[in-house]
């Protein structure tokens, strides 16, 4: 017990109680753990977002995606005949977002890795792969390249989850993963 009442002390000279020191230490160490978990996952984790991105004009990106579709289209799907494109295993796959569709449909092989190129031709879009629940922001003028390795066969949908105007809720794309 101090002789002077606490009211008369300078606040930065108050001693700390043991309980406070313990809680602050625990909280600080927990912060370090969480910080280094992110770093560790870059070293030893399987799910990291690529930092590979390029500036590209919407027209140039559209041209690349169209050339890709022209080369590898295997069939068409849906009422509007969206091309289904099967890139070679280990190769480049392209998908563009525009008001209001993801184009084209991709067909990937389970267990193979692909370099997936994403960009938008107009506004911001959100690449939300369901039901895997992988969510990536897609910008115009930036081409993001990430390596994906689908590990389960099935039909996946790409929902747009960045608001992009009145047709936003109609914007659904598709990725097939086959054995």
């Amino acid at each position: 017990m101090a002789i002077t009442p606490p009211e008369e002390r300078l606040w930065w000279k108050e001693p700390l109680a043991r309980m406070e020191v313990m809680w602050i230490s625990i909280a600080f160490v927990w912060g370090l753990v969480m910080f280094f978990t992110m770093v560790y996952w870059h070293i030893d984790g399987q799910q990291n977002l690529s930092n590979e991105a390029y500036r590209i004009s919407p027209d140039a990106f559209a041209e690349k995606v169209e050339a890709f579709a022209a080369e590898y289209t295997v069939r068409e799907e849906g009422d509007t005949g969206i091309p289904v494109v099967r890139p070679p295993a280990g190769g480049d796959a392209y998908m563009l977002g525009r008001l209001w569709e993801w184009w084209p449909i991709l067909e990937l092989k389970k267990g193979e890795s692909y370099r997936l190129h994403l960009s938008s031709l107009d506004w911001l879009h959100g690449f939300s792969l369901q039901p895997a629940n992988i969510n990536i922001q897609v910008h115009p003028n930036y081409e993001m390249v990430l390596t994906v390795t689908p590990d389960e066969a099935g039909v996946y949908s790409v929902v747009c989850n960045e608001f992009c105007g009145i047709g936003h809720h109609q914007m659904v794309g598709r990725i097939h993963v086959v054995e």
């Binding site: 849906g78 969206i82 939300s128 369901q130 629940n133 989850n161 936003h168 109609q170 659904v172 794309g173």
Partner: peptide, 21 residues
């Protein structure tokens, strides 16, 4: 959200979309 439902989205049934989900 953990089940993937998008924010800022009018129709989670996607009734007007060309491809269903």
């Amino acid at each position: 959200g953990t089940l993937g439902v998008s924010r800022r989205h009018w129709d989670m049934t996607f009734s007007d979309a060309t491809l269903s989900f």
